[in-house]
Design a protein around this nucleic acid. Sequence first.
DNA 1: TATTGTTATACTCTATAACTATA
DNA 2: TATAGTTATAGAGTATAACAATA
Lengths: 141, 141
Amino acid sequence: MALTGELSLAIVRLARRLRGRRTSKVVSLTQLSALSTLHHEGPMTPGALALAERVQPPSMTRVIASLSDLGMVRREPHPTDGRQAIVTLAPRGSEVINAELEAREEWLSARLEELSIDDRDTLAAAVPIIKKIIIGGPDDR
Amino acid sequence: MALTGELSLAIVRLARRLRGRRTSKVVSLTQLSALSTLHHEGPMTPGALALAERVQPPSMTRVIASLSDLGMVRREPHPTDGRQAIVTLAPRGSEVINAELEAREEWLSARLEELSIDDRDTLAAAVPIIKKIIIGGPDDR
DNA sequence: TATTGTTATACTCTATAACTATA
DNA sequence: TATAGTTATAGAGTATAACAATA
């Protein structure tokens, strides 16, 4: 299917443009993605967060550590299992998340403003489909 | 616009899933993206390729070097300007590109097969819009 | 002096392998 | 012995700053 190749290239190129702009922002897109999952799904263990974000546990360990350093999340002991921990959105993380989600990418917002209403509608319709794709497939990459 | 945040997260998460699978493939998505540009637009200088791919020149230097090592591209002297070079798709690069574009992401192809025809149509309609976004905005990131 | 490209360096994101602590 | 998580290490991808060569 030709769509596969076209979509792959479009996605990686747009992600490249979105990522480059780390400077002067409070959190990276990777960090924001994890915060957003905690916001939507509530406190969870590092393992569950890694699964939700579809990254390996060691990768999530680093993201959590960086967010903890920023005061965005807290690590709390698991009530019954000493091996696990519970990662919770801290007040600072809650404050930041919506503002960042909407305001972080002025660049993307400006690009979206330049589109026609039809184009924006198409993108809005594509977002849930992309989410389906992300969730689909094997967990073990 | 809420779409900004939703779209950002969806894009970076899908890109993350697409990237992870470097193993057992001939070229990475970054390399494939550069090959694809050379395929569509013909031979060009490293600077022009960096601009087309929207990365900084030193980043493109590395991509070209890796593709050259793989025998996918050739560097030729510029006919009139000794500072510049011309990067050309080598036969090996041409052979690889279409097969890779369509076959590289079996994972994505399988996900697309699981969608409804309407969903695929929506994604297909979204691709050219995403391309518009990628091209838009300032070159100096 | 301006432009093109490369080299040097560093940071983010992600992975796999090995290890620790607890169950 | 199995599971959850961290530490150690590595590699891709990208950037900025400094440099060399040529115009």
